[in-house]
């Protein structure tokens, strides 16, 4: 995952390790062009694609990515879910936030009741 620059927040696959500072990345399905990136500007995700030979071409990488369903794997991670939630939260309107507040209140009431009964035991 790239963390800096115009491609920040996009996923890319490490295709080759250039030296101890830089890697060659490519993201045919996420809109990242093939480029070298320093380690400072990316973080590693737990997802590792199998059967990726060194300096694989963009075309064949695309096939691999689609075959192994990289986007699906990414969406399942709690990291991706957190990002999604953050996005939804920031787009809530005033009315939505009010409804959310009510829902949280309800949850609090239920949890609190249960907690009380458990503590009594």
């Amino acid at each position: 995952m790239l963390t800096y620059g115009p491609d920040a927040g996009k996923l890319a696959v490490i295709v080759d390790i250039i030296d101890h500072n830089r890697v060659l990345v490519d993201g045919p399905t996420t809109g990242v062009t093939r480029q070298s990136v320093t380690f400072k500007r990316c973080t590693l995700t737990p997802i590792v694609l199998s059967k990726v030979p060194r300096t694989i071409q963009t075309k064949s990488l695309k096939k691999l990515v689609e075959a192994q369903d990289l986007n699906g794997l990414w969406a399942k991670t709690s990291w991706a879910k957190k990002i999604e939630v953050r996005k939804v939260r920031s787009n809530l309107t005033d009315f939505d936030r009010f409804k959310l507040m009510l829902a949280r209140k309800q949850r609090r009431a239920i949890v609190g009741k249960q907690r009380k009964t458990l503590l009594k035991k």
């Binding site: 920031s90 787009n91 809530l92 309107t93 005033d94 009315f95 936030r97 009010f98 409804k99 009510l102």
Partner: peptide, 24 residues
């Protein structure tokens, strides 16, 4: 649903909410 309650409630900012950053 809930619109009546929404109008009845008054607006306020809570912890971590910044007026320039929230969507209203």
């Amino acid at each position: 649903p809930l619109f009546k309650q929404y109008l009845n409630a008054s607006f306020s900012l809570t912890k971590g909410q910044y007026p320039h950053a929230i969507k209203v």
